[in-house]
Amino acid sequence: MAKTGTDLVKRGMAEMQKGGVIMDVVNAEQAKIAEESGAVAVMALERVPSDIRAAGGVARMADPTIVEEVLNAVSIPVMAKARIGHIVEARVLESMGVDYIDESEVLTPADEQYHLNKRDFTVPFVCGSRDLGEAARRIGEGASMLRTKGEPGTGNIVEAVRHMRMVQSQVRKLTSMDLDEVMTFAKEIGAPYEVLLQIREAGKLPVVNFAAGGVATPADAALMMQLGADGVFVGSGIFKSDNPAKFAKAIVEATTHYQDYKLIAELSKGLGTPMKGIDIASLSPENRMQERGW
């Protein structure tokens, strides 16, 4: 008989997004621009990360009115963010028919010890990670898709690069490791042993891993693809730029043809000023969203 909410169905949904760009939007109009430019999904938010940063205070799940508006505006999948560990926000978004939930460090965590038990849900989840230990813990909890945490709302790619390289190099290390060494490695990085065994066997993560947190230009998107990302989330970059429609299209094309440098040069012309950006060193630890998550 028909089975819903299985690993295959939840992870498979993310497989279909590969090679694509997922864009943050705050209303129906932006969602339509994103769809028109070739986004594979949109993330419905009340504020993009750079505005969340600027506004301060507690950042929560978006107003359901905005989520509903976006759900009705486009035919591509709609994602939305819930606070880390906020079971009810996640259930509310699931009940509204959101296609994917981001249990996100961009919002203020609701639980400082535990993430959601994502296996309990029919809707699939994406979670951020900075290293293989974090990635494996999230997979252990039932995440069906991963993304680098990067440092959201900064327009600075350096943290996303660090996190992607870290996960990749640890996967390489694990796959060439003697089986005798895996348990101690699991202990060192705080990863569930069984998940590491699966990764070692397959030679890769069992879920797709997108880049997120600081993608500001078409070249940034292409860089992350070159480093092995399966696709790209773009948050503040697009709708904070001078010409969002043009910018969105350029990011989509650069992601598809990430090794076609002449093309990337062409599509980077005349895009106007990208978002100003923040040097990570100038952010105090309590202002770094990537430190959230356990």
């Binding site: 819903t4 498979g12 949904m13 035919s75 999948p77 959101v98 296609d99 994917y100 809707v123």
Partner: peptide
């Protein structure tokens, strides 16, 4: 018909 079985929560194996 696109998305004819519904949204992601309705996705299934058979």
């Amino acid at each position: 018909e696109r998305n004819a079985f519904g949204r992601q929560v309705d996705s299934f194996e058979a």
